[in-house]
Amino acid sequence: MLKPAEMIARLRRARRLVHEIHVGTDIPQIQSILRHADQNLHWALWNLGEIDELRPDLPGSVKPAARAKPKPGARKRAKKR
């Protein structure tokens, strides 16, 4: 079984993919379906206690992929903030 953190990482990746296809097509039907899919992915994240924003269409909702592992020092700084 996947751990919650693993589920969350995959759901976030799925949202990025969905978003990528949405902006990469001009077929209205496919765009509508993808928007629905993203809503459901957002809802899955919400029900894993991961998300606190009300709607998937708010600016910045689809998070960019995390970069390579942050250096230990960088992580500490981020926490302090």
Partner: peptide
């Protein structure tokens, strides 16, 4: 339907509520 959330300890639920409420208020 979702055991993890339906049985979440109170402190964790409250922390989630606070985050959601702050998001809602800003919204």
């Amino acid at each position: 339907w979702n055991a993890r959330m339906e049985r979440m300890p109170r402190a964790e639920l409250d922390a989630l509520h606070l985050a959601k409420l702050r998001g809602l208020v800003a919204f």
